[in-house]
Design a protein around this nucleic acid. Structure first.
Lengths: 213, 213
DNA sequence: TTAGGTTTGTGAACGCTTTCACAAGCGTAG
DNA sequence: CTACGCTTGTGAAAGCGTTCACAAACCTAA
């Protein structure tokens, strides 16, 4: 095994799954690659190619059964289990993420919240309370954390990344605008709102001629 | 003109700019493509290729002057002006974004905050107060808004997108987990935390063998 | 002024991703 | 059972983005 699957394919699979889950409410039913593509903003061929990397899930002439494909995609993406997540940083972003019900619904369970601010430590957050980041190694171990979300200021991000890597965590979702240095076996996904806005800015300059001056 | 510039190139340019601005504090100085690549997590050839799409900004044997390249990148990305931004949705994500000082510092000025909840309308947010989303067309016009940030629930996102497009906005930063339908001249950037986590999940399954069962 | 060391800018090669195009397969209707 | 319409799965082709490799250019030192 160990096929080569591109990052963009994985992102599309996540979209397909979201679309299928919206359909699930209604009934089983089926969906063709064309319909799925339409909703996901891609092409039918792309949908079929993406899925074909993992198996044959459709029926010719009929399309894909919503319930079946949902199960397969969950399996492929590793979502048939619950991931134990630690949230590092109890600021505004951390708060927004903690309250974001879709995470838990999708199988990402925030089992610990850590911060450095004595004013925040001990504060009750939902079922858990904010703990001291100084106890990070112990907490990650005891809570059997598998994924860390870094929602801390830039200057603290690399140090914390080193710590969570030392603690054996192999997946990091990074909100700090910094290129983290991690060993190759650790997966990092960055979320950078400034970069997104700057991409928009670039596009807008392009289309509306450049109004520099 | 109108060269073909890939999305990934634009994202890297944004990274280069961030790195350069961190260096700016110190002095002018210079940076080679190798050093820039090292910090941005890419290759020297990639850096040079990215920049070469827009001109020749370096000196052979010397590298790039930090101050000069900073100016060029700002110009290229359309950041020598202030973008007037409306924030749609005064929930937790909206709040986190509003408080995120880096946005204004980078030239994205949130000039209006809109929500649908009567309990929030009128609340003072920094210099502005939350306004009724029912007045969206008037507000976008009067505030000369150019970019909209959608930080609202999924089910409201498409309707609001239609409204901002009708109001002439050509750039949308979308936090709702939904594929927005917009005319081709409108640029959309999506931020989807669930997709990022699912990509991590996929990676983790890959490396640590699949523990399905 | 010249030699040497360094780094850019860029065509060409390479590899990956997307699109194309069609045979194979499935269900339905008669 | 047969004919028909539709949709998948997939090699092949096309299109893009990244990497390679090197001539051209620049600074420094002597």
């Amino acid at each position: 095994m160990t096929r080569k699957v591109s990052e963009s394919t994985v992102r599309r699979l996540s979209q397909y799954l979201r679309i299928l889950e919206e359909r699930m409410a209604g009934n089983g039913g089926t969906l063709s690659s064309g319909q799925l593509a339409e909703e996901a903003g891609t092409t039918a061929a792309q949908v079929r190619k993406d899925l074909s990397l993992f198996g044959s899930f459709g029926k010719r002439g009929m399309g894909y059964r919503v319930d079946e494909l949902t199960t397969h995609l969950r399996q492929i993406l590793g979502l048939q289990r619950v991931w134990r997540v630690a949230l590092l940083g109890a600021g505004r972003i951390g708060s927004a993420l903690f309250e974001y019900a879709a995470l838990r619904r999708r199988g990402f369970d925030i089992v610990a919240v850590l911060d450095q601010d004595p004013g925040k430590i001990g504060a009750p957050w939902g079922g858990v309370s904010v703990q001291d980041v100084a106890d990070l190694p112990r907490i990650l171990r005891e809570e059997r954390v598998e994924v860390a979300i870094l929602a801390v200021p830039s200057h603290a991000a690399q140090d914390l990344a080193d710590q969570v890597v030392s603690a054996g965590i192999r997946g990091i979702l990074n909100f700090a605008p910094t290129q983290l240095r991690v060993p190759p076996e650790v997966a990092v996904q960055d979320v950078n709102v400034v970069t997104e806005l700057e991409s928009l800015s670039f596009e807008l300059m392009r289309s509306s001629g450049n109004g520099a001056g």
